[in-house]
Design a binder for these strands. Structure first.
Lengths: 256, 256
DNA sequence: GGATATTGGTTCATTATTTGAACCGTTATT
DNA sequence: AATAACGGTTCAAATAATGAACCAATATCC
Protein backbone atom coordinates (compact mmCIF):
# COMPACT_ATOMS: atom_id res chain seq x y z
CA UNK A 1 0.00 0.00 0.00
CA UNK A 2 1.44 3.33 -1.01
CA UNK A 3 1.92 6.25 1.30
CA UNK A 4 -1.18 8.10 0.09
CA UNK A 5 -3.28 5.00 0.60
CA UNK A 6 -1.93 4.60 4.10
CA UNK A 7 -2.77 8.17 5.00
CA UNK A 8 -6.30 7.89 3.68
CA UNK A 9 -6.87 4.57 5.42
CA UNK A 10 -6.15 6.39 8.67
CA UNK A 11 -8.87 8.88 7.84
CA UNK A 12 -11.23 6.02 7.16
CA UNK A 13 -10.84 4.78 10.72
CA UNK A 14 -12.87 7.68 12.05
CA UNK A 15 -16.59 7.01 12.39
CA UNK A 16 -19.68 8.69 13.75
CA UNK A 17 -19.45 6.38 16.74
CA UNK A 18 -15.77 7.18 17.26
CA UNK A 19 -14.97 10.63 15.93
CA UNK A 20 -11.80 11.00 18.00
CA UNK A 21 -8.95 8.53 18.25
CA UNK A 22 -5.53 8.50 19.91
CA UNK A 23 -2.20 7.87 18.22
CA UNK A 24 -1.68 4.41 19.68
CA UNK A 25 -5.25 3.45 18.85
CA UNK A 26 -4.90 4.59 15.23
CA UNK A 27 -1.60 2.71 14.95
CA UNK A 28 -3.11 -0.46 16.34
CA UNK A 29 -6.19 -0.38 14.14
CA UNK A 30 -4.31 0.50 10.97
CA UNK A 31 -1.53 -1.97 11.59
CA UNK A 32 1.06 0.75 10.98
CA UNK A 33 3.99 1.45 13.32
CA UNK A 34 3.38 4.28 15.75
CA UNK A 35 6.13 6.36 14.16
CA UNK A 36 4.63 5.86 10.71
CA UNK A 37 1.16 6.67 11.97
CA UNK A 38 2.39 9.81 13.67
CA UNK A 39 4.17 11.01 10.56
CA UNK A 40 1.12 10.40 8.40
CA UNK A 41 -1.05 12.26 10.90
CA UNK A 42 1.31 15.21 10.91
CA UNK A 43 1.11 15.40 7.14
CA UNK A 44 -2.69 15.19 7.21
CA UNK A 45 -2.86 17.83 9.93
CA UNK A 46 -0.64 20.17 7.99
CA UNK A 47 -3.29 20.21 5.28
CA UNK A 48 -6.27 20.43 7.59
CA UNK A 49 -7.52 16.90 6.94
CA UNK A 50 -7.02 16.02 10.57
CA UNK A 51 -7.02 18.13 13.72
CA UNK A 52 -5.51 17.32 17.09
CA UNK A 53 -7.39 18.26 20.21
CA UNK A 54 -5.15 20.48 22.31
CA UNK A 55 -6.31 18.98 25.61
CA UNK A 56 -6.76 15.27 24.92
CA UNK A 57 -4.15 14.97 22.14
CA UNK A 58 -6.68 12.87 20.23
CA UNK A 59 -7.07 13.23 16.51
CA UNK A 60 -10.22 13.93 14.57
CA UNK A 61 -11.28 14.75 11.03
CA UNK A 62 -10.51 18.35 10.06
CA UNK A 63 -11.93 21.37 8.30
CA UNK A 64 -9.92 20.79 5.15
CA UNK A 65 -12.11 17.78 4.39
CA UNK A 66 -15.28 19.75 4.96
CA UNK A 67 -14.02 22.46 2.66
CA UNK A 68 -13.40 20.08 -0.24
CA UNK A 69 -16.69 18.33 0.36
CA UNK A 70 -18.43 21.70 0.21
CA UNK A 71 -16.72 22.49 -3.06
CA UNK A 72 -17.89 19.17 -4.42
CA UNK A 73 -21.41 19.71 -3.13
CA UNK A 74 -21.56 23.19 -4.63
CA UNK A 75 -21.15 21.68 -8.07
CA UNK A 76 -22.88 18.42 -7.43
CA UNK A 77 -25.66 19.27 -4.97
CA UNK A 78 -26.59 15.70 -4.15
CA UNK A 79 -27.27 16.33 -0.46
CA UNK A 80 -29.04 19.62 -0.86
CA UNK A 81 -31.29 18.13 -3.50
CA UNK A 82 -31.99 14.79 -1.87
CA UNK A 83 -32.10 15.42 1.87
CA UNK A 84 -35.48 17.19 1.93
CA UNK A 85 -36.98 14.32 -0.06
CA UNK A 86 -35.36 11.76 2.21
CA UNK A 87 -36.90 13.56 5.14
CA UNK A 88 -40.33 13.56 3.49
CA UNK A 89 -40.13 9.86 2.76
CA UNK A 90 -39.11 9.13 6.33
CA UNK A 91 -42.15 11.02 7.58
CA UNK A 92 -44.46 9.26 5.16
CA UNK A 93 -43.21 5.76 5.94
CA UNK A 94 -42.26 6.20 9.61
CA UNK A 95 -39.26 3.99 8.95
CA UNK A 96 -35.54 4.54 8.45
CA UNK A 97 -34.71 6.13 5.13
CA UNK A 98 -31.11 6.34 4.00
CA UNK A 99 -29.39 7.95 1.08
CA UNK A 100 -26.22 6.51 -0.41
CA UNK A 101 -23.74 7.54 -3.01
CA UNK A 102 -21.51 5.18 -4.93
CA UNK A 103 -17.83 5.33 -4.26
CA UNK A 104 -14.90 3.06 -3.53
CA UNK A 105 -16.71 0.09 -5.06
CA UNK A 106 -19.40 0.24 -2.43
CA UNK A 107 -22.22 2.51 -1.40
CA UNK A 108 -21.42 5.27 1.04
CA UNK A 109 -24.21 6.33 3.40
CA UNK A 110 -24.40 10.11 3.22
CA UNK A 111 -27.70 10.81 4.97
CA UNK A 112 -30.06 8.97 7.30
CA UNK A 113 -33.44 9.88 8.71
CA UNK A 114 -34.39 7.70 11.64
CA UNK A 115 -38.03 7.51 12.71
CA UNK A 116 -38.87 8.56 16.22
CA UNK A 117 -39.42 4.97 17.33
CA UNK A 118 -37.39 2.86 19.71
CA UNK A 119 -37.63 -0.22 17.51
CA UNK A 120 -36.08 0.89 14.29
CA UNK A 121 -33.23 0.07 11.95
CA UNK A 122 -30.15 2.08 12.81
CA UNK A 123 -27.70 3.11 10.14
CA UNK A 124 -24.77 5.46 10.61
CA UNK A 125 -23.75 8.21 8.27
CA UNK A 126 -20.53 7.12 6.65
CA UNK A 127 -21.43 3.47 6.83
CA UNK A 128 -20.29 1.50 3.81
CA UNK A 129 -22.83 -0.82 2.25
CA UNK A 130 -21.81 -3.85 0.24
CA UNK A 131 -23.51 -4.13 -3.14
CA UNK A 132 -24.54 -7.77 -3.28
CA UNK A 133 -26.29 -8.03 0.07
CA UNK A 134 -28.30 -4.84 0.44
CA UNK A 135 -31.39 -3.40 -1.19
CA UNK A 136 -29.36 -0.31 -2.01
CA UNK A 137 -26.62 -2.41 -3.53
CA UNK A 138 -28.97 -4.40 -5.74
CA UNK A 139 -30.82 -1.25 -6.79
CA UNK A 140 -27.50 0.33 -7.67
CA UNK A 141 -26.24 -2.64 -9.65
CA UNK A 142 -29.51 -2.81 -11.57
CA UNK A 143 -28.60 0.50 -13.20
CA UNK A 144 -24.83 0.39 -13.03
CA UNK A 145 -22.29 0.17 -15.81
CA UNK A 146 -21.34 -3.36 -16.82
CA UNK A 147 -17.84 -2.96 -15.43
CA UNK A 148 -19.18 -2.19 -11.97
CA UNK A 149 -21.49 -5.19 -12.07
CA UNK A 150 -18.73 -7.47 -13.26
CA UNK A 151 -16.35 -6.19 -10.63
CA UNK A 152 -18.90 -6.82 -7.90
CA UNK A 153 -19.80 -10.35 -9.06
CA UNK A 154 -16.12 -11.23 -9.45
CA UNK A 155 -15.27 -10.12 -5.93
CA UNK A 156 -15.86 -11.69 -2.56
CA UNK A 157 -19.59 -12.18 -2.02
CA UNK A 158 -19.65 -12.45 1.73
CA UNK A 159 -22.56 -14.16 3.43
CA UNK A 160 -23.58 -11.84 6.24
CA UNK A 161 -26.64 -13.90 7.13
CA UNK A 162 -28.16 -17.18 6.02
CA UNK A 163 -30.28 -15.13 3.63
CA UNK A 164 -27.48 -13.34 1.83
CA UNK A 165 -27.34 -14.00 -1.90
CA UNK A 166 -23.84 -15.17 -2.72
CA UNK A 167 -24.31 -16.79 -6.12
CA UNK A 168 -23.72 -14.44 -9.07
CA UNK A 169 -26.70 -15.90 -10.90
CA UNK A 170 -29.01 -15.24 -7.97
CA UNK A 171 -27.72 -11.70 -7.63
CA UNK A 172 -28.22 -11.12 -11.37
CA UNK A 173 -31.79 -12.33 -11.06
CA UNK A 174 -32.37 -10.00 -8.16
CA UNK A 175 -30.98 -7.12 -10.26
CA UNK A 176 -33.26 -8.00 -13.17
CA UNK A 177 -36.25 -8.06 -10.84
CA UNK A 178 -35.24 -4.64 -9.51
CA UNK A 179 -35.00 -3.25 -13.04
CA UNK A 180 -38.36 -4.74 -13.89
CA UNK A 181 -40.15 -3.49 -10.82
CA UNK A 182 -38.28 -0.22 -10.44
CA UNK A 183 -37.12 -0.98 -6.93
CA UNK A 184 -35.27 -3.74 -5.14
CA UNK A 185 -36.30 -5.78 -2.14
CA UNK A 186 -33.78 -7.21 0.26
CA UNK A 187 -34.90 -9.63 2.92
CA UNK A 188 -32.27 -9.93 5.67
CA UNK A 189 -29.36 -9.91 3.25
CA UNK A 190 -27.11 -7.86 5.51
CA UNK A 191 -28.71 -8.25 8.92
CA UNK A 192 -31.19 -10.61 10.49
CA UNK A 193 -34.64 -9.18 11.01
CA UNK A 194 -34.26 -6.26 8.60
CA UNK A 195 -36.11 -5.87 5.33
CA UNK A 196 -35.47 -3.06 2.88
CA UNK A 197 -36.55 -1.62 -0.41
CA UNK A 198 -34.43 0.70 -2.50
CA UNK A 199 -34.29 2.51 -5.81
CA UNK A 200 -31.45 3.88 -7.88
CA UNK A 201 -30.77 7.56 -8.33
CA UNK A 202 -29.53 8.20 -11.83
CA UNK A 203 -26.93 10.52 -13.27
CA UNK A 204 -27.38 12.43 -16.51
CA UNK A 205 -25.92 9.53 -18.45
CA UNK A 206 -28.67 7.26 -17.22
CA UNK A 207 -26.43 5.21 -14.97
CA UNK A 208 -26.88 4.94 -11.22
CA UNK A 209 -24.89 7.28 -9.00
CA UNK A 210 -26.56 6.48 -5.71
CA UNK A 211 -29.62 5.05 -4.05
CA UNK A 212 -32.36 5.76 -1.59
CA UNK A 213 -33.71 3.01 0.65
CA UNK A 214 -36.32 2.33 3.31
CA UNK A 215 -35.29 -0.16 5.98
CA UNK A 216 -37.56 -1.62 8.63
CA UNK A 217 -37.79 -4.44 11.13
CA UNK A 218 -39.25 -7.40 9.24
CA UNK A 219 -41.47 -8.29 12.19
CA UNK A 220 -43.73 -5.33 11.59
CA UNK A 221 -43.61 -5.32 7.82
CA UNK A 222 -46.44 -6.70 5.69
CA UNK A 223 -46.41 -7.51 1.99
CA UNK A 224 -48.56 -4.45 1.40
CA UNK A 225 -45.98 -2.34 3.26
CA UNK A 226 -43.26 -3.56 0.95
CA UNK A 227 -45.18 -2.68 -2.16
CA UNK A 228 -46.19 0.69 -0.81
CA UNK A 229 -42.68 1.60 0.28
CA UNK A 230 -41.23 0.27 -2.95
CA UNK A 231 -43.42 2.54 -5.02
CA UNK A 232 -42.67 5.45 -2.72
CA UNK A 233 -38.92 4.96 -2.82
CA UNK A 234 -39.05 4.61 -6.59
CA UNK A 235 -40.97 7.87 -6.93
CA UNK A 236 -38.54 9.64 -4.60
CA UNK A 237 -35.52 8.32 -6.48
CA UNK A 238 -37.04 9.53 -9.70
CA UNK A 239 -37.72 12.95 -8.24
CA UNK A 240 -34.14 13.25 -7.00
CA UNK A 241 -32.82 12.15 -10.39
CA UNK A 242 -34.96 14.70 -12.19
CA UNK A 243 -33.94 17.52 -9.86
CA UNK A 244 -30.28 16.68 -10.21
CA UNK A 245 -30.30 16.31 -13.95
CA UNK A 246 -33.37 18.05 -15.30
CA UNK A 247 -33.68 17.77 -19.06
CA UNK A 248 -30.22 16.25 -19.35
CA UNK A 249 -31.33 12.92 -18.03
CA UNK A 250 -31.26 10.54 -20.93
CA UNK A 251 -34.49 8.71 -21.59
CA UNK A 252 -32.56 5.58 -22.45
CA UNK A 253 -32.29 3.28 -19.47
CA UNK A 254 -34.81 5.39 -17.65
CA UNK A 255 -36.82 3.57 -15.03
CA UNK A 256 -40.04 2.04 -16.30
CA UNK B 1 6.93 18.16 0.35
CA UNK B 2 6.04 14.62 1.27
CA UNK B 3 3.90 12.36 -0.80
CA UNK B 4 0.78 12.88 1.31
CA UNK B 5 1.17 16.65 1.04
CA UNK B 6 1.53 16.38 -2.70
CA UNK B 7 -1.61 14.31 -3.03
CA UNK B 8 -3.64 16.71 -0.91
CA UNK B 9 -2.33 19.74 -2.78
CA UNK B 10 -3.78 18.19 -5.93
CA UNK B 11 -7.16 17.99 -4.23
CA UNK B 12 -6.85 21.63 -3.27
CA UNK B 13 -6.63 22.63 -6.93
CA UNK B 14 -10.31 21.89 -7.44
CA UNK B 15 -12.65 24.83 -6.92
CA UNK B 16 -16.29 25.68 -7.32
CA UNK B 17 -15.35 27.54 -10.49
CA UNK B 18 -13.34 24.60 -11.83
CA UNK B 19 -14.67 21.36 -10.40
CA UNK B 20 -13.12 19.20 -13.14
CA UNK B 21 -9.51 19.23 -14.30
CA UNK B 22 -7.45 17.18 -16.73
CA UNK B 23 -4.25 15.32 -15.97
CA UNK B 24 -1.98 17.72 -17.82
CA UNK B 25 -3.71 20.69 -16.26
CA UNK B 26 -3.32 19.29 -12.75
CA UNK B 27 0.34 18.55 -13.44
CA UNK B 28 0.95 22.05 -14.72
CA UNK B 29 -0.77 23.79 -11.84
CA UNK B 30 0.78 21.64 -9.16
CA UNK B 31 4.24 21.74 -10.65
CA UNK B 32 4.50 17.95 -10.43
CA UNK B 33 5.61 15.74 -13.30
CA UNK B 34 2.74 14.21 -15.25
CA UNK B 35 3.75 10.70 -14.20
CA UNK B 36 3.82 11.75 -10.56
CA UNK B 37 0.49 13.50 -10.86
CA UNK B 38 -1.05 10.48 -12.49
CA UNK B 39 0.20 8.15 -9.80
CA UNK B 40 -1.10 10.39 -7.03
CA UNK B 41 -4.48 10.63 -8.76
CA UNK B 42 -4.67 6.86 -9.07
CA UNK B 43 -4.02 6.51 -5.37
CA UNK B 44 -6.65 9.15 -4.54
CA UNK B 45 -9.14 7.51 -6.89
CA UNK B 46 -8.58 4.12 -5.31
CA UNK B 47 -9.85 5.60 -2.04
CA UNK B 48 -12.70 7.57 -3.54
CA UNK B 49 -11.16 10.99 -2.94
CA UNK B 50 -11.12 11.64 -6.65
CA UNK B 51 -13.26 10.33 -9.49
CA UNK B 52 -12.46 10.25 -13.18
CA UNK B 53 -15.19 11.05 -15.66
CA UNK B 54 -15.56 8.11 -18.04
CA UNK B 55 -16.20 10.30 -21.06
CA UNK B 56 -13.93 13.33 -20.64
CA UNK B 57 -11.20 11.60 -18.61
CA UNK B 58 -11.18 14.65 -16.36
CA UNK B 59 -10.80 14.30 -12.63
CA UNK B 60 -13.05 15.65 -9.92
CA UNK B 61 -13.50 15.41 -6.16
CA UNK B 62 -15.02 12.10 -5.08
CA UNK B 63 -17.59 10.58 -2.78
CA UNK B 64 -14.97 9.43 -0.28
CA UNK B 65 -14.41 13.04 0.72
CA UNK B 66 -18.11 13.65 1.12
CA UNK B 67 -18.38 10.58 3.30
CA UNK B 68 -15.68 11.72 5.72
CA UNK B 69 -17.08 15.23 5.78
CA UNK B 70 -20.47 13.79 6.66
CA UNK B 71 -18.95 11.77 9.48
CA UNK B 72 -17.31 14.91 10.77
CA UNK B 73 -20.52 16.92 10.46
CA UNK B 74 -22.50 14.21 12.25
CA UNK B 75 -20.39 14.75 15.33
CA UNK B 76 -19.67 18.39 14.84
CA UNK B 77 -22.82 19.78 13.24
CA UNK B 78 -21.39 23.15 12.36
CA UNK B 79 -23.20 23.46 9.02
CA UNK B 80 -26.51 22.07 10.17
CA UNK B 81 -26.49 24.42 13.15
CA UNK B 82 -25.25 27.52 11.42
CA UNK B 83 -26.67 27.48 7.92
CA UNK B 84 -30.27 28.30 8.89
CA UNK B 85 -29.00 31.26 10.91
CA UNK B 86 -26.75 32.37 8.07
CA UNK B 87 -29.76 32.28 5.81
CA UNK B 88 -31.82 34.33 8.27
CA UNK B 89 -29.11 36.95 8.57
CA UNK B 90 -28.82 37.17 4.81
CA UNK B 91 -32.53 37.81 4.54
CA UNK B 92 -32.47 40.40 7.29
CA UNK B 93 -29.50 42.34 5.91
CA UNK B 94 -30.05 41.72 2.17
CA UNK B 95 -26.28 41.40 1.83
CA UNK B 96 -23.82 38.55 1.42
CA UNK B 97 -23.41 36.49 4.56
CA UNK B 98 -20.66 33.92 4.76
CA UNK B 99 -19.71 31.32 7.29
CA UNK B 100 -16.13 30.22 7.80
CA UNK B 101 -14.35 27.62 9.79
CA UNK B 102 -10.73 27.79 10.86
CA UNK B 103 -8.35 25.35 9.31
CA UNK B 104 -4.93 25.26 7.67
CA UNK B 105 -3.94 28.54 9.30
CA UNK B 106 -6.67 30.40 7.45
CA UNK B 107 -10.41 30.59 7.39
CA UNK B 108 -12.22 28.23 5.10
CA UNK B 109 -15.52 29.43 3.62
CA UNK B 110 -18.04 26.68 4.20
CA UNK B 111 -21.30 28.42 3.41
CA UNK B 112 -22.40 31.56 1.58
CA UNK B 113 -25.79 33.18 1.17
CA UNK B 114 -25.82 35.72 -1.62
CA UNK B 115 -28.62 38.32 -1.75
CA UNK B 116 -30.79 38.40 -4.82
CA UNK B 117 -29.14 41.57 -6.10
CA UNK B 118 -26.92 42.09 -9.10
CA UNK B 119 -24.57 44.38 -7.20
CA UNK B 120 -23.34 42.21 -4.38
CA UNK B 121 -20.19 40.79 -2.93
CA UNK B 122 -19.46 37.35 -4.36
CA UNK B 123 -17.66 34.75 -2.31
CA UNK B 124 -17.16 31.13 -3.28
CA UNK B 125 -17.59 28.16 -1.03
CA UNK B 126 -14.15 26.77 -0.37
CA UNK B 127 -12.51 30.15 -0.67
CA UNK B 128 -9.67 30.60 1.78
CA UNK B 129 -9.63 33.86 3.71
CA UNK B 130 -6.42 35.32 5.08
CA UNK B 131 -6.61 36.31 8.73
CA UNK B 132 -4.98 39.72 8.78
CA UNK B 133 -6.94 41.34 5.96
CA UNK B 134 -10.54 40.26 6.41
CA UNK B 135 -13.29 41.02 8.91
CA UNK B 136 -13.61 37.29 9.48
CA UNK B 137 -9.89 36.99 10.08
CA UNK B 138 -9.73 39.80 12.59
CA UNK B 139 -12.83 38.52 14.38
CA UNK B 140 -11.24 35.09 14.54
CA UNK B 141 -7.91 36.36 15.85
CA UNK B 142 -9.66 38.40 18.50
CA UNK B 143 -10.74 35.14 20.15
CA UNK B 144 -7.99 32.82 19.03
CA UNK B 145 -5.30 31.08 21.07
CA UNK B 146 -2.12 33.08 21.46
CA UNK B 147 -0.18 30.64 19.27
CA UNK B 148 -2.53 31.23 16.35
CA UNK B 149 -2.23 35.00 16.74
CA UNK B 150 1.55 34.85 16.99
CA UNK B 151 1.76 32.58 13.97
CA UNK B 152 -0.36 34.96 11.94
CA UNK B 153 1.55 38.10 12.91
CA UNK B 154 4.88 36.37 12.30
CA UNK B 155 3.86 35.32 8.81
CA UNK B 156 3.61 37.19 5.54
CA UNK B 157 1.11 40.01 5.91
CA UNK B 158 0.28 40.61 2.29
CA UNK B 159 -1.16 43.94 1.23
CA UNK B 160 -4.10 43.09 -1.00
CA UNK B 161 -5.21 46.71 -1.29
CA UNK B 162 -3.91 50.07 -0.17
CA UNK B 163 -6.16 49.68 2.89
CA UNK B 164 -4.84 46.34 4.08
CA UNK B 165 -3.35 46.41 7.58
CA UNK B 166 0.15 44.98 7.36
CA UNK B 167 1.70 46.20 10.60
CA UNK B 168 1.36 43.73 13.51
CA UNK B 169 0.61 46.62 15.88
CA UNK B 170 -2.23 47.87 13.71
CA UNK B 171 -3.66 44.38 13.40
CA UNK B 172 -3.44 43.92 17.18
CA UNK B 173 -5.32 47.18 17.67
CA UNK B 174 -7.99 46.02 15.24
CA UNK B 175 -8.29 42.77 17.19
CA UNK B 176 -8.64 44.62 20.48
CA UNK B 177 -11.36 46.79 18.99
CA UNK B 178 -13.16 43.68 17.77
CA UNK B 179 -12.99 42.13 21.25
CA UNK B 180 -14.25 45.35 22.78
CA UNK B 181 -17.12 45.82 20.38
CA UNK B 182 -17.98 42.19 19.87
CA UNK B 183 -17.54 42.35 16.12
CA UNK B 184 -14.87 43.42 13.66
CA UNK B 185 -15.06 45.91 10.84
CA UNK B 186 -12.92 45.58 7.75
CA UNK B 187 -12.85 48.41 5.25
CA UNK B 188 -11.46 47.17 1.91
CA UNK B 189 -8.75 45.04 3.52
CA UNK B 190 -9.03 42.28 0.94
CA UNK B 191 -10.79 43.92 -1.95
CA UNK B 192 -11.47 47.48 -3.08
CA UNK B 193 -15.01 48.64 -2.57
CA UNK B 194 -16.00 45.95 -0.08
CA UNK B 195 -16.76 46.57 3.58
CA UNK B 196 -17.48 43.76 6.04
CA UNK B 197 -18.37 43.05 9.63
CA UNK B 198 -17.77 39.72 11.33
CA UNK B 199 -18.03 37.97 14.67
CA UNK B 200 -16.32 34.90 16.08
CA UNK B 201 -18.10 31.64 16.68
CA UNK B 202 -16.71 30.04 19.81
CA UNK B 203 -15.95 26.47 20.77
CA UNK B 204 -16.72 25.01 24.17
CA UNK B 205 -13.30 26.10 25.40
CA UNK B 206 -14.12 29.71 24.69
CA UNK B 207 -11.76 30.02 21.75
CA UNK B 208 -12.86 30.84 18.23
CA UNK B 209 -13.49 27.99 15.81
CA UNK B 210 -15.02 29.98 13.00
CA UNK B 211 -16.72 33.20 12.01
CA UNK B 212 -19.77 34.65 10.43
CA UNK B 213 -19.56 37.82 8.32
CA UNK B 214 -21.67 40.26 6.36
CA UNK B 215 -20.01 41.73 3.30
CA UNK B 216 -21.37 44.57 1.20
CA UNK B 217 -20.35 47.09 -1.43
CA UNK B 218 -19.03 50.09 0.46
CA UNK B 219 -20.81 52.45 -1.89
CA UNK B 220 -24.21 51.62 -0.47
CA UNK B 221 -23.15 51.17 3.13
CA UNK B 222 -23.77 53.85 5.77
CA UNK B 223 -22.28 54.08 9.24
CA UNK B 224 -25.66 53.10 10.65
CA UNK B 225 -25.64 50.01 8.41
CA UNK B 226 -22.28 48.98 9.84
CA UNK B 227 -23.46 49.26 13.40
CA UNK B 228 -26.72 47.47 12.68
CA UNK B 229 -25.03 44.63 10.84
CA UNK B 230 -22.31 44.42 13.46
CA UNK B 231 -24.83 43.89 16.20
CA UNK B 232 -26.75 41.41 14.07
CA UNK B 233 -23.69 39.37 13.18
CA UNK B 234 -22.61 39.37 16.81
CA UNK B 235 -26.01 38.11 17.93
CA UNK B 236 -25.98 35.40 15.25
CA UNK B 237 -22.48 34.29 16.17
CA UNK B 238 -23.53 34.05 19.77
CA UNK B 239 -26.60 32.02 18.87
CA UNK B 240 -24.53 29.61 16.78
CA UNK B 241 -22.01 29.28 19.61
CA UNK B 242 -24.74 28.55 22.14
CA UNK B 243 -26.42 25.96 19.90
CA UNK B 244 -23.14 24.22 19.22
CA UNK B 245 -21.97 24.16 22.81
CA UNK B 246 -24.98 24.68 25.03
CA UNK B 247 -24.09 24.76 28.71
CA UNK B 248 -20.54 23.65 28.00
CA UNK B 249 -19.50 27.03 26.69
CA UNK B 250 -17.18 28.53 29.24
CA UNK B 251 -18.19 31.96 30.48
CA UNK B 252 -14.56 32.99 30.53
CA UNK B 253 -13.66 34.83 27.39
CA UNK B 254 -17.31 35.01 26.48
CA UNK B 255 -18.21 37.93 24.26
CA UNK B 256 -19.13 41.10 26.10
C1' DG C 1 -6.43 16.97 -45.26
C1' DG C 2 -1.79 17.22 -43.48
C1' DA C 3 1.24 19.06 -39.98
C1' DT C 4 1.79 20.22 -35.42
C1' DA C 5 0.56 20.58 -30.60
C1' DT C 6 -1.43 18.74 -26.71
C1' DT C 7 -3.71 15.33 -24.49
C1' DG C 8 -3.86 11.09 -21.20
C1' DG C 9 -0.93 7.70 -20.11
C1' DT C 10 3.45 4.29 -19.30
C1' DT C 11 8.19 2.67 -18.14
C1' DC C 12 12.25 1.71 -15.12
C1' DA C 13 16.97 3.19 -13.47
C1' DT C 14 17.72 6.52 -10.13
C1' DT C 15 16.64 9.25 -6.17
C1' DA C 16 14.18 10.68 -2.30
C1' DT C 17 11.11 9.56 1.06
C1' DT C 18 9.41 6.47 4.28
C1' DT C 19 10.09 3.13 7.58
C1' DG C 20 10.11 1.02 12.33
C1' DA C 21 12.93 -0.90 16.31
C1' DA C 22 14.44 1.10 20.08
C1' DC C 23 14.08 4.61 22.98
C1' DC C 24 12.07 8.65 25.96
C1' DG C 25 9.10 11.27 29.43
C1' DT C 26 4.46 11.53 31.07
C1' DT C 27 0.15 9.78 32.57
C1' DA C 28 -3.04 6.12 33.81
C1' DT C 29 -3.85 1.84 35.93
C1' DT C 30 -3.22 -1.74 39.20
C1' DA D 1 5.11 1.97 44.28
C1' DA D 2 5.28 -0.75 40.26
C1' DT D 3 3.74 -1.50 35.88
C1' DA D 4 1.35 -0.53 31.61
C1' DA D 5 0.13 2.41 28.13
C1' DC D 6 0.15 6.74 26.35
C1' DG D 7 2.06 10.39 22.81
C1' DG D 8 6.11 11.18 20.70
C1' DT D 9 11.30 11.00 18.52
C1' DT D 10 15.48 9.24 16.06
C1' DC D 11 18.26 7.64 12.03
C1' DA D 12 20.41 3.63 9.39
C1' DA D 13 18.16 0.74 6.31
C1' DA D 14 14.49 -0.27 3.21
C1' DT D 15 11.04 0.91 0.19
C1' DA D 16 8.30 3.83 -2.48
C1' DA D 17 8.31 7.62 -5.42
C1' DT D 18 10.28 10.03 -9.10
C1' DG D 19 10.54 12.02 -13.88
C1' DA D 20 12.87 12.00 -18.60
C1' DA D 21 11.74 9.89 -22.45
C1' DC D 22 8.50 7.73 -24.84
C1' DC D 23 3.71 6.30 -26.87
C1' DA D 24 -1.00 6.50 -29.26
C1' DA D 25 -4.95 9.30 -29.65
C1' DT D 26 -7.18 13.62 -30.12
C1' DA D 27 -7.44 18.57 -30.87
C1' DT D 28 -5.92 22.56 -33.18
C1' DC D 29 -4.11 25.14 -36.88
C1' DC D 30 -3.32 26.35 -41.58
Amino acid sequence: MGTVGKAISLLELFTVAEPELGLSDLARRSGFDKATTRRLLVALTRHGFVEQDAATRHYRLGAGLSRLARIREARFPFLRTAVPLVRDLASATAETVHLSEFGIDRLVTVHVEHPARANRVNIDIGQLLPLHSTASGIAYLAFARDEAVKACLAGLLEAFTAHTLTEPAAISRSMAEARERGYSICDQGLEEGVISVAAAILAADGFALGTIAVAAPKARTTTADITQRGLAVMATAREISMRLNGDNLQSLRRQA
